Amino acid sequence: MTVEAVDLGRHPDQPVSPADARSTRTVGWFGATALLPMVAAHVVGASVVDPVLDPISWYAFVPGGGELILAGGLVLAVLGLLLTVRMYRAGLAAGPVPAVAMILFAVAMVLVGAFPTDPPDLETPASMSAVIHRVSAAGAFCVLPLVGLSIERTIQQPRSALPQGLRAAARALGTVVALFLVVHLSLVFFADSGIVAFGLIERIGFVIMIAYLFLIAATIDREGLDGAAGTPGAGPTPALSGPRSAGPVV
């Protein structure tokens, strides 16, 4: 009769099973749902708004466009709050910074849709609604890197390369944020940024935002699998070197 050691842990390189990818699926569904009204806005405003030159916010002046922008923002706001709850439950977030950052992101997404920017032909200084809209849009990009960096610092023994990728992506997103700040802060007081292909840059930034939320969700799924056992982010469970209580293997 011999007793075999049994490894109850997950190998660091073992792929995540579909059952473990809950947060990633959530971002997939919510991200697609958020993109639908944006795509619809592009369709209804195709003859008015140039997607390469004009900002997304100008769809607010197309019939139904304002409601579509608000719907997309609300979906992303709910998604941000869901990810906040899951990152704390998985033990991958500690302290108030991740929660405050993601709540600010959610509020910013709502404000972007609730307060439209000024019409494109308005030559007077920006209205209060336009200021709130533009500062909120820039703020949403500013806080997301903080969420990723906070999660990455919490993980002491990563199972995968996702935390490292999250840190690298946070730095890359920080570069995008710097560009966004230059653009949107200039738009606070001026109707035209003067930047060539500004609309295209803004749309690429929106896609990057969704991709970054995907990365956060994947990190929650991959690195927080032991959260219920009280050992989140601690790497795979060590193999057992003693006999199992279920009895020996003959």
Rank of each mutant, 00 (worst) to 15 (best):
P119F: 03
P158V: 10
G80N: 02
T117V: 02
S127N: 14
G139F: 06
D121K: 13
G80H: 02
V107E: 03
R89A: 14
I132E: 08
A126H: 12
L81F: 01
P158F: 05
L82Q: 08
T84C: 03
V147P: 03
L83C: 09
A137S: 12
F105R: 07
P116W: 12
M102L: 07
T117E: 02
P119D: 01
A140N: 00
A99Q: 05
G113D: 12
V112Q: 12
T84R: 03
I103K: 06
F115M: 15
V110S: 09
T84M: 01
V147K: 04
P120G: 06
T124Y: 09
E123P: 09
R89T: 04
I151H: 09
L104M: 02
G95Y: 08
S127G: 14
V100R: 11
L146Y: 07
A137L: 05
C142W: 02
V112A: 12
V112S: 09
A114T: 10
V131T: 14
I155T: 10
V110H: 10
S150E: 13
T117I: 06
E123D: 15
S129W: 07
V97F: 01
V100W: 09
A130C: 09
T124R: 14
A108K: 07
A101C: 11
R153I: 00
A126K: 14
R86F: 02
I151W: 03
P125L: 03
M128V: 13
R159A: 13
G139A: 08
G139L: 08
L111C: 15
D118P: 01
A130W: 10
P119M: 03
I132A: 10
R89I: 03
P96A: 11
A108H: 09
M102G: 01
R89E: 12
L92W: 06
V147D: 05
T154R: 14
I151Y: 10
G91M: 07
L111P: 10
A114S: 11
S129N: 14
A114W: 15
S150N: 08
R86W: 09
C142A: 15
H133I: 08
A93N: 04
I103L: 11
I103Y: 08
V147E: 01
R134V: 06
A99R: 09
A140D: 00
P116Q: 14
P120L: 13
A138M: 13
V131C: 09
S129G: 00
P145L: 00
L149Q: 01
T124G: 03
L122F: 15
M87R: 06
S136I: 11
F141K: 01
V85E: 08
L122A: 15
F141H: 11
